[in-house]
Design a protein around this nucleic acid. Structure first.
Length: 317
DNA sequence: CGTGTTTGACCGGCGC
DNA sequence: GCGCCGGTCAAACACG
């Protein structure tokens, strides 16, 4: 990341809210992270949202992720906006079928809800209900293809968005991406690029766009989960960035996102709960993400646990 | 020649 | 029904 001029690293959970939630976002919230709604998917779940779902305050967030004062302003712009329990649950939808966000983070509330339930709720999702005709197994993803049977809602993939201070738009994350489209973003001079994982049968996509109000910020939205490990023929820096142990397949079929790599680090919980031992991390084989988090004084694993589905968190037996 | 990018056209959903 | 808009396709092109 350093070789891409990455200066800051934001974490940003996103999911597929039902249309009601989306309308709440789009209608009541002027901006998300200071970005015009048109340039950012309204289904985003902000850090603040996560904080509202937990006992953490904003100061913890700022401290945890080293948010600059300017960034704080952006985040704080969401302060005061109502967040319904539904939205909080939606945040959990981001790939996990458990719904423990609103409750105790450690409790494993039996799934059932989340994506399946969210699916029914989204009867007329606006932006999240994209066709994605190529994912139905059938490769009939041509124009005019209507393989989607009527009444059958397209199963939507979990999404995850990052806000990254970077000078380059396309951040190397270890996977190989093929750009398949670019669209101008309304109310923004910066275009939005669409990428797809080049690995066969992998339907993961990501969108990359630059923040209108903060051109130094790149918003990367991952959609779906990789069903394969990181490519062996890594180009760029990812192969060298991450220890081999982190490039192995996870229960999810491989780490989909950089933060997921972070979450996969064993003993992360203990190290982060012990600042005294954290200092030794640099002598160990830690990822750049861990180093970043450490450098920015992530105080407690619990913070991440509150924001990341427990599925992403691996505990030592 | 294989791989990735560019770019205009197309499609479907949604609001009016 | 129409227009807008986000997302996708695919031919043409660039590059190593």
């Amino acid at each position: 990341m350093s070789d891409h001029g990455l200066r800051d690293f934001y974490y940003h959970a996103s999911t597929f809210n039902n249309d009601h939630d989306q309308q709440s976002f789009g209608g009541e919230t002027d901006s998300i992270y200071g970005v015009s709604p048109s340039s950012v998917d309204p289904s985003y779940m902000s850090f603040t949202d996560c904080l509202h779902s937990t006992s953490l305050d904003y100061g913890s967030l700022e401290k945890a992720f080293g948010l600059s004062p300017s960034s704080s302003e952006v985040f704080s712009s969401l302060e005061g906006s109502n967040r319904t329990a539904k939205q909080l649950v939606s945040a959990e939808d981001l790939g996990s079928n458990t719904g423990e966000v609103t409750g105790t983070p450690n409790s494993s509330i039996s799934s059932s809800s989340s994506e399946a339930g969210c699916e029914e709720d989204s009867d007329k999702s606006k932006k999240d209900g994209q066709p994605k005709g190529s994912e139905d197994g059938g490769e009939s993803s041509k124009k005019g293809n209507k393989a989607k049977t009527k009444g059958e809602k397209k199963q939507r993939e979990p999404r995850f968005a990052f806000m990254t201070k970077s000078e380059v738009d396309h951040l190397e994350d270890g996977y190989r991406w093929r750009k398949y489209g670019q669209k101008a973003v309304k109310n923004s001079p910066y275009p939005r690029s669409y990428y797809r994982c080049t690995t066969q049968k992998c339907t993961v996509k990501k969108r990359v766009e630059r923040s209108f109000q903060d051109p130094s910020t790149v918003i990367t939205t991952y959609e779906g989960q990789h069903n394969h490990p990181l490519p062996t023929t890594l180009r760029g820096s990812a192969a060298g960035l991450f220890p081999p142990s982190m490039l192995t397949q996870s229960p999810l079929g491989g780490p989909s996102f950089p933060h997921e790599l972070l979450m996969q680090m064993p003993n992360y919980h203990h190290q982060m709960n012990n600042q005294a031992t954290a200092g030794s991390m640099f002598a160990q084989n830690v990822s750049p993400f861990q180093q970043y988090v450490h450098q920015h004084q992530v105080p407690d694993y619990g913070l991440l646990q509150d924001m990341v589905p427990s599925r992403f968190l691996k505990h030592e037996p």
